[in-house]
Amino acid sequence: MKIGEQEVRYVAGLANLSLSGAEIARMAHDLDEILTHIDKLNELDTSAVEPMAQVLYEAGETATLREDVTGASFDNETALANAPLAGAGQFKVPKIIER
């Protein structure tokens, strides 16, 4: 086993997901299979290959940058249209208790 239910719970917690007991078992199984497959890929010697972060790596420097010119923003009403709770032009969320 590459990954157990404990790890699944931990990762689910980080991702704000609540999984049922059955889902946790299924996820542990699925993720384990994926990692086993990755292990198979790891059998290839890639020590001479530069890690690739993006398939568009060869794009020129200018093609992917934006000029610093102001464009349109939402008005306040549009910005808050999807907010479950809003007030004083702001999003309202349950009290943050960190401090």
Binding site: A79, L85, G87, A88, G89, Q90, F91, K92, V93, P94, K95, I96
Partner: peptide, 13 residues
């Protein structure tokens, strides 16, 4: 600073 600040935090993005 808001009337319901005991229950909510306000977010400006």
């Amino acid at each position: 600073g808001y009337r319901d600040s005991d229950r909510y935090s306000y977010v400006d993005l």
